[in-house]
Simulated assay, not measured.
Amino acid sequence: MVHSTRRTFLGLTLAGITGVALAGCASRDSGPKVTLALSTLSNPFFADLRDGAAAAARSAGIDLAVVNAQDNPENQLDQLRTAAVNGSRAVIVNPVDSDAAKPAATAVMDQGIPLIAVDRGITDRTPGSFIASDNVAGGRQAATLLAELLGGTGKIAVLEGQPGASATRDRGAGFLEELRKHPGLEVVASQTANFDREDALDVMTNMVQAAPGIQAVYAHNDEMALGAAVALGSRAGKDVKIIGFDGGGDALDAVKAGTLSGTIAQSPRELGRQAVLQALRAVQGQPLQPSVRVSVTTVTSKNVDEFVAKSKES
Rank of each mutant, 00 (worst) to 15 (best):
K302Q: 15
A157H: 07
T300W: 05
L277N: 11
G244F: 12
A57Y: 09
N221T: 02
A100M: 02
L146G: 09
G248Q: 14
A173G: 02
L14S: 03
S59Y: 02
T40R: 03
E198D: 11
P32F: 01
F46V: 10
R293K: 15
V108I: 09
T13Y: 13
A173H: 10
G154F: 02
V203C: 06
A279V: 01
T168D: 12
N86E: 08
F45S: 14
F245H: 07
V294Q: 03
H220N: 13
D63W: 12
A193I: 04
P290V: 06
V188I: 08
V108S: 07
R89H: 06
D222I: 10
A228E: 05
G248I: 14
G258S: 02
A251C: 06
D246P: 15
A165W: 01
E186G: 00
A26S: 13
P183I: 06
R125V: 15
G87N: 05
V203I: 14
S295L: 12
D51M: 08
A189C: 08
G121Y: 05
L146H: 08
S295R: 14
A100Y: 00
A225L: 06
G52S: 10
A21L: 04
G249R: 11
T168Q: 12
T13S: 10
R140Q: 08
S27R: 06
D305M: 08
G31H: 03
D246I: 04
G152C: 04
T5Q: 11
G174F: 00
N75A: 13
D29G: 11
E148V: 07
G11K: 10
L185C: 04
I116M: 10
R169N: 11
F195M: 03
Q79F: 08
G227S: 05
L14N: 06
Q70N: 15
F130G: 09
